[in-house]
Structures are given as structure tokens and as C-alpha cells.
């Protein structure tokens, strides 16, 4: 087990290396630079700025320099937000994004799994169609429409909940963004659960269990649920990636100080260090999440052992 974890973490190194290299050169290929703006800086000042951040050097040298700093855990200063370093910005934004993301994925599982199970048991019935129709509505409308719609209805017109802001993570401020963020994942999880439940219910050993005369709820809870959960568990990795993506939109619409906004703004402002910092951070995060998901998978699936 420990050996397996160690091996996986070692394998993460080439992954991260690719991530860093690709995004570094992409970022530097993008037209425009961090100090191009509406008003022209005097040439001397621009040269001065470029030299301060080593941007006057050849790109490969900048790359080596960046990697060197990164190895020492230094993400560098933000070009745009001059009062903070990239590390500080990530450390401010990440807890917010994490909290939002965890609630969203939790809600998605809490609603999506039962929906999928019910639909599978009542396959092709009205219940099935209604449940899946509702779930599918979640994938049919982009979340950047759902989010302002929620804000308009529940925030402005009904005035039940705040329209935006974070307010240090007060639950009232979190409800709408969490719902908006989880809607799409609810749909995916419900569909996946339904499909895999149907498959399991059709399998030989469930038929055997039924033949033994077990009660229906016993068949489902005792025998079918665990194997049916496997595909959903392995979907958690992509699901979390999806939530991260969605949070870019949600954070912008609800004005939440998460990390996704930094990335988009960094990319648009050519804030190289901020973009690289968020990419590296998320790269590492996704590696970690995938590892956790795989371990969870092995815990659920008796056929897989990582010890040997």
C-alpha cells in the first residue's frame, strides 16, 4: 500500500513536468506581455520592469530560472497584483475554492446517487423518465446561465439569500454557488449510477441472489450497491476536475475569491507567474485526487489489491 502510494507519487513527477513545461511555453507564446496596457510605459521604465522580472532574457533561460525557483517552493511575485506573491494569492484562494468544491461534490453525490438508484430500480417507468429528465435538464443548460438565474430569483426577487460575495464563508453566501456548481455533476452522477445499477441488476449473481428469495431492498443494499458504485467512484476524479472548471464561472458570477478567477485573469493579463502558479498547483492537486480516488476504488473493489 505505502509502496504503491510512493510509486504513484514518483510517477507524478513527469506529469507535473509536462504540465509546467507545456503551460510555460504556451503562456510565453501568447501575444502581448504583462506590461502591455492601455497607456504606454516609457521605454526606460518598461526595460527596467522587464529586467526586474528577468523577462528580457531568452525564454529557455526564463524557464530554467522558473524551474529553479519552483524547486525552492517559490512561485514568484504576481506581475499584476503587486502587493501579494503568487503563493499568498493561492493560499488565500485555495481554501475558498476547496470549501466550495467539497460542498458541491457532496451535494452532487447526495442527490445524484439516490436519483440514479431509484431510476434504475424503476427502469422505463414514469418515475425513471421524470428523474432522468430532471437530471438531464442540468446538463442541458450551461451553468453560466443557471448561476445568474439563481441569483436573480433567490437573491434579487425573493431576497432569501445573498446575491454574491463570500463573507468569510457564511453558509448563506454559499448556498447558491454550491447549488449552481453541483447541478451539472448531479446529472452526470445520476446517469452513471443508473446505468451501472442497471448493469449490476442484470448480472448473474444478482439473479442468483433473487433466486435465493432475498427481499428486494436486501438485494439492492446488500449486493448491488457496492459494485454499482464503482464506476461512480472512478468518475470522481473527472467530476472534481469538472467542479474546478465550473468554479471558474461560478466564482466570477458570484464574486467569490477563489483560485479559478486568478487563473482566468492571470491568463488574460499575461500575469505569467500567477498563471503558472495556479496551473502547477492544480496539476498537483489533480494527481493527488486521482490517487485518492484509486485508493478508494481499491477499498470498494475486492478484486483489486495494490500490495503486490
Amino acid at each position: 500500500m505505502l509502496y504503491y502510494v510512493g510509486k504513484r507519487l514518483l510517477q507524478a513527477i513527469p506529469t507535473l513536468l509536462i504540465v509546467i513545461t507545456v503551460s510555460f511555453f504556451l503562456m510565453h507564446m501568447a501575444p502581448g506581455g504583462p506590461f502591455d496596457g492601455e497607456r504606454q510605459l516609457p521605454a526606460e521604465i518598461e526595460a527596467n520592469l522587464l529586467a526586474t522580472y528577468h523577462l528580457d532574457q531568452p525564454v529557455w533561460k526564463q524557464y530554467l530560472l522558473y524551474m529553479g525557483n519552483l524547486l525552492q517552493g517559490d512561485f514568484g511575485p504576481s506581475f499584476r497584483y503587486k502587493d501579494f506573491t503568487v503563493t499568498e494569492l493561492i493560499m488565500q484562494g485555495f481554501p475558498v475554492s476547496l470549501e466550495l468544491g467539497l460542498w458541491a461534490i457532496g451535494l452532487a453525490l447526495l442527490i445524484g446517487l439516490p436519483m440514479g438508484i431509484v431510476a434504475a430500480i424503476r427502469r422505463n417507468s414514469t418515475v425513471d423518465y421524470m428523474v432522468m429528465g430532471t437530471a438531464l435538464a442540468g446538463v442541458a443548460v450551461p451553468n453560466f446561465v443557471i448561476a445568474p438565474l439563481l441569483a436573480l430569483v433567490f437573491g434579487v426577487l425573493l431576497a432569501w439569500l445573498p446575491v454574491g460575495g463570500w463573507n468569510d464563508g457564511h453558509w448563506r453566501n454559499m448556498v447558491l454557488p454550491v447549488v449552481a456548481l453541483s447541478i451539472q455533476q448531479i446529472a452526470y452522477i445520476a446517469r452513471m449510477m443508473r446505468a451501472s445499477m442497471i448493469e449490476v441488476l442484470g448480472s448473474q449473481y444478482i439473479r442468483t441472489a433473487r433466486a435465493k428469495g432475498l427481499a428486494e431492498y436486501e438485494v439492492i443494499w446488500g449486493h448491488a450497491l457496492r459494485p454499482a458504485l464503482l464506476p461512480v467512484v472512478s468518475y470522481l476524479g473527472p467530476a472534481i476536475a469538472g467542479i474546478i472548471t465550473g468554479s471558474v464561472v461560478i466564482e466570477q458570477i458570484f464574486g467569490i475569491p477563489g483560485i479559478g478567477r486568478y487563473f482566468v485573469q492571470g491568463a488574460l493579463n499575461r500575469d505569467y507567474t500567477l498563471v503558472m502558479g495556479t496551473v502547477v498547483f492544480y496539476g498537483a492537486l489533480i494527481v493527488l485526487i486521482n490517487l485518492i480516488v484509486d485508493l478508494l476504488y481499491s477499498a470498494l473493489d475486492p478484486q483489486i489489491r495494490y500490495d503486490h
Partner: peptide, 19 residues
């Protein structure tokens, strides 16, 4: 393929769009 799975895919797409 495993390595590719670990890429922060959306971020790369945004970078591609910018470029």
C-alpha cells in the same frame, strides 16, 4: 494516457485559446 489524465485540462484549453 494516465499522465494526460492528470493535466489540468481546462486550463490548457484556456491557454490554447489565448494563444
Amino acid at each position: 494516457v494516465d499522465i494526460m489524465y492528470s493535466l489540468p485540462f481546462m486550463f490548457l484549453v484556456i491557454l490554447l485559446m489565448v494563444v
